[in-house]
Design a protein around this nucleic acid. Structure first.
Lengths: 350, 350
DNA sequence: ACTTCTGCTGCAAACCTTTGCAGTCACACC
DNA sequence: GGTGTGACTGCAAAGGTTTGCAGCAGAAGT
């Protein structure tokens, strides 16, 4: 029932190759013919069959986007931006969710490999080695991780963590806790490294607690441990944890920011609505999504497995391996304040 | 470079059709042969080419999911559930975002049509007529709307609205406002109808304000108008609006729930974190996502355009047109309380 | 011993499109 | 007038898979 290139050709009295060219290489066909073909196509409601096209060109005009958890508010803005950018370039995007499971991650890359021109791997939990290997199977762009030999877009969370710590020490805090993220997270390591350095520079003490699950529950569960350390300020791996911590501290009778200051990372929409509103490090997630698809497309344009007959691979292995770094900024809201005269621990004693 | 069915056949000393059958109709091949083929395939890293498969079967094993705004917190749980359910059935899902624009909606259905076995149309803003027409082009399941002749899954927001109104009148409120959603939203009409009826039954007055954009800003902007009506309780089209309203009322110096009660709809994650925590109607978004892909797959199994040679269409037009309705529930939290003795308007006057 | 059946495998067409090559035609140039 | 040029179009192969049909062997039934 759906019209094919052949139907259009017949209706128009031309050969199918002419119809094909009208769509894929318009400059090769006489304007007059072209218009006639276009008209017939329009009339018959013809739409090129992407599967057939993919079969012969080897390019699907699809990309895959793999994230840990679609429902985690950090991701949707990134997904949205990537999808929009891709569509502008006439690409569609498969979105897949790993449920934070590295095994699923790998499986998904495989499942998608034959069906896309490349995949965006977001905040992977896999080992670097495995990622490199997968990168040999299908063009890959990694988000929130640096992997040797692979294009990547990362957020400058190191800077963000430093700004956060400086903000806190500037308010007089001398005793800090860092709530680390999940094991295997590149971002978490980065934050830790930078926060430690910044604390040392300001002659403050920084205790690292973790790893913790990067969820609200992870933050809530950490509240008790935080209290026992007696610190006056906390930097959390992400906003979700920070928000959970806010709740946990509240349940323990500690006031934020009077008794203890809290800083998150990500600036998810939610952080503007908590009470107190969360001080946090804004990460440009939308920009990251856009940048990632641009890198994939521009780069994949060369590297994509071209199974058509033309097959002009020019040394598949040494890929340009650009890595872009996006800037983060501190957003000061209400969850941070000057260090209390007496640490929170004392307050609990009364 | 990537292994094809032919490579496997050669490595195994069988005909390609045997390899094909090993994957697509295993019961037709001798267990012994099958295992040999499987082993070869494994060894060569063979993965079936879905484009080629799609080309001949006419089934892509992909589905499209079209939503108004990925970043709107109402959608991610639905997307996640749909994707997960689809993957279990060996389907992948294209996610697309319309930016609330009906024109983009239509364009997307077209763009996806040739590339998927069906599409899930979520909270469409298009006209019913257009949807019906598109439904003739590609199998369609509509979410949050009833369209004649098309399978649909809707949430019983009518019930939710009734429960909300009864909850409020039960607390002594006699003067209510409904903040309507965007024009063209089936859900909004449904809520309005039901809330009006419930208010009448309880002998309360209900004023409808709107249409409003279904966003936080929409709620905030409505605060002033709400205050002028002097009501003691508000039901909002969705949680985003309710949260915005909370902020707007706060800015006007009105306390929730002491001066005025607020109820939202959807129970997005955010509503547990506002202060006061939002009373709302929980909609089973994840279940809706799952149900929708099930309907599409089960139904699309028959209706899908079979372009292969078998072509055994049995009366394309009269499709089974199941419509499932999911139950909503009221979740009482802190944004609702007993009606104040004097309405809010008075309080402002002092 | 002959047919019938069953279980398995091979054959080849078909799905729709792209694209290198070759052919046609008109026109201009020498 | 012959040759060359350029613009356009047709031809046919190729891409990887599925599937109706036919073939074949061996078992079972008569």
């Amino acid at each position: 029932m759906p019209a094919t290139i052949r139907d259009v050709a017949r209706a128009c009295g031309v050969h199918i190759s002419t119809v094909s060219r009208t769509f894929s290489a318009p400059h090769l066909v006489n304007p007059e013919t072209r218009n006639r073909v276009l008209a017939c196509a329009e009339r018959l409601g013809y739409r090129p069959n992407r599967a057939a096209r993919a079969l012969i060109t080897g390019r699907t005009h699809n990309i895959g986007l793999i994230v840990a958890d679609i429902a985690n508010p950090f991701f949707p803005p990134l997904i949205k931006a990537a999808e929009s950018q891709a569509r502008q370039r006439d690409y569609h995007v498969f979105v897949a969710d790993t449920n934070e499971d590295p095994a699923v991650e790998e499986e998904l890359v495989h499942a998608l490999a034959k069906q896309v021109d490349g995949v965006l791997l977001c905040s992977p939990r896999m080992s670097n080695g495995l990622i490199e290997q997968l990168g040999r199977e299908v063009p890959l762009v990694v988000i929130n991780r640096r992997v040797a030999g692979l294009p990547a877009v990362v957020m400058d969370v190191g800077r963000g963590a430093r700004l956060a710590v400086e903000h806190l020490t500037g308010l007089g805090h001398r005793d800090l806790v860092l709530l680390a993220g999940p094991r295997g997270s590149w971002t978490s390591r980065e934050i830790r490294r930078s926060a430690t350095a910044a604390a040392r520079a300001a002659e403050a003490r920084l205790t690292v607690l973790g790893p913790n699950p990067p969820t609200e529950e992870g933050g809530r569960a950490a509240a008790e441990r935080v209290r026992r350390t007696g610190v006056t300020a906390v930097l959390a791996f992400n906003d979700l944890m920070a928000v959970g911590l806010l709740e946990g501290l509240d349940a323990l009778g500690l006031r934020v920011p009077e008794d203890i200051s809290v800083v998150g990372i990500d600036d998810i929409a939610l952080s503007r609505f908590t009470r107190p509103r969360l001080t946090t490090v804004a990460t440009p997630t939308a920009a990251a999504g856009r940048a990632a698809v641009d890198m994939l497309l521009q780069h994949g344009g060369l590297a994509a497995t071209r199974t058509g007959r033309g097959r002009s691979d020019t040394g598949d292995d040494r890929r340009a391996t650009a890595q872009v770094t996006l800037r983060t900024e501190l957003v000061v809201r209400d969850s941070t304040g000057v260090a209390p005269a007496a640490p929170a621990r004392r307050r609990l004693a009364r």
